[in-house]
Simulated scan of single mutants.
Amino acid sequence: MTSTPVALITGASRGIGRAIADDLAATHHLLLGGRDRTALTELASSYPSAEPFVAELRDAGQVAAAVSGIDRLDVLIHSAGILRMGPVAELTDDAWRESFEVNLFAVAALTRALLPVLRAAGGQVVTINSGSGYTSGASSAIYSGTKFALRAFTDALREEERQHGVRVSSIHPGRVATDMQEELHAWEGKEYSAEAWIQPDQVAKAVRLAVDTTRESAIETLSIRPSGISLR
């Protein structure tokens, strides 16, 4: 393994995860998390130092196999996630289970598996949460529920890991111009204009700020909101 700092990014092939990979590529060896080995291998070839980290994060066996070869990790960035919306009266049990499995349980399991190498490196955990980790509204119970829970997880992890030298950052972007956002607008029946929303590279810059913060300090929580300023 290279002496360059190592960063594992889940959901690295698209949206915010891809933007984070683009930003960190100049300074880190990247472990690009996702399920499509072919796509991740192609993406890895575009960076100075990168390799795929292939696993279905809800599958304990796949996660165990994927982490078994990691002997150093400086930064673990949880960017993978799903968005489910709908009135409580219409949400199925399967929708609730899937959302919590991806947005919370998989995060907890992967973090737990990698804590030994993160502690050894004096590393960092960065979660990409959401503005929905602070507020909820109509049709957002399921998504906000997972993000509230993720915030509770990171708050607890931060306090537990101080003694082990691991810092924990929670990044809370508002609506970001990704394909997920386009799908959400379609579900809401609203016109989508990508330039009206936070750009993925701005979230990546927030992650960079957390990663570059020196050891005597930490970005614990950071909220990024759309300015509401018309760019037209």
Rank of each mutant, 00 (worst) to 15 (best):
S79I: 01
I20N: 02
H29T: 14
H172F: 15
L110F: 07
I16C: 01
L43P: 01
A194C: 10
E182I: 01
G145R: 06
P48L: 08
K190G: 00
R225E: 15
E220I: 12
D22W: 04
R162Y: 07
I219A: 00
T127L: 13
T154L: 11
T38N: 08
A109C: 05
A108Y: 08
L31T: 00
A152D: 06
P87R: 10
A149Y: 03
G33L: 14
M85N: 12
P173A: 04
G133I: 03
K190D: 14
A149C: 07
D59C: 07
T27K: 13
S79A: 14
L222D: 10
L209V: 09
T92H: 11
A60L: 10
A177W: 04
Q199V: 09
G61Y: 14
L115G: 02
A210V: 03
L73R: 01
D59R: 09
S169M: 00
T178I: 10
A194S: 10
A80I: 11
T221E: 15
Q62W: 12
E216H: 14
G33W: 07
T221D: 15
T2L: 03
T2N: 09
A156I: 13
G174W: 05
V67M: 11
Y192V: 06
F153T: 02
V168H: 00
A50L: 12
T214N: 14
I77S: 08
S3P: 06
G11A: 05
D93S: 11
I219M: 12
L104C: 09
L91M: 15
W187L: 12
T221G: 11
Q163H: 10
L57S: 01
I219N: 02
Y134W: 13
A138K: 08
Y47E: 00
A39I: 00
L8G: 00
G133F: 06
A65R: 15
T10Q: 07
S217Q: 15
L209Y: 12
F148H: 09
E98C: 04
L91K: 01
F148L: 10
S223K: 11
A121R: 14
A109V: 09
F105S: 08
L118N: 04
E90S: 15
F148R: 00
Q202P: 04
A141M: 09
R58E: 14
V117P: 01
L40M: 11
S169D: 07
E42R: 13
R175A: 12
H185V: 00
D22I: 10
L32G: 01
V102S: 04
A206R: 03
G122W: 13
T214Q: 15
H29V: 01
A12C: 06
P116G: 07
E195S: 07
L118Y: 09
R97A: 14
R18F: 08
S170H: 00
G69R: 08
T154W: 00
A109D: 13
L209S: 03
N129P: 10
L231Q: 14
L24Q: 04
E159S: 12
A149N: 10
S170G: 03
R215D: 15
I198G: 01
S139N: 12
P200E: 05
T4I: 12
L76S: 03
R97T: 12
P173C: 05
L222E: 06
E183T: 09
L57V: 02
R97C: 11
I142H: 04
A196E: 13
S136V: 06
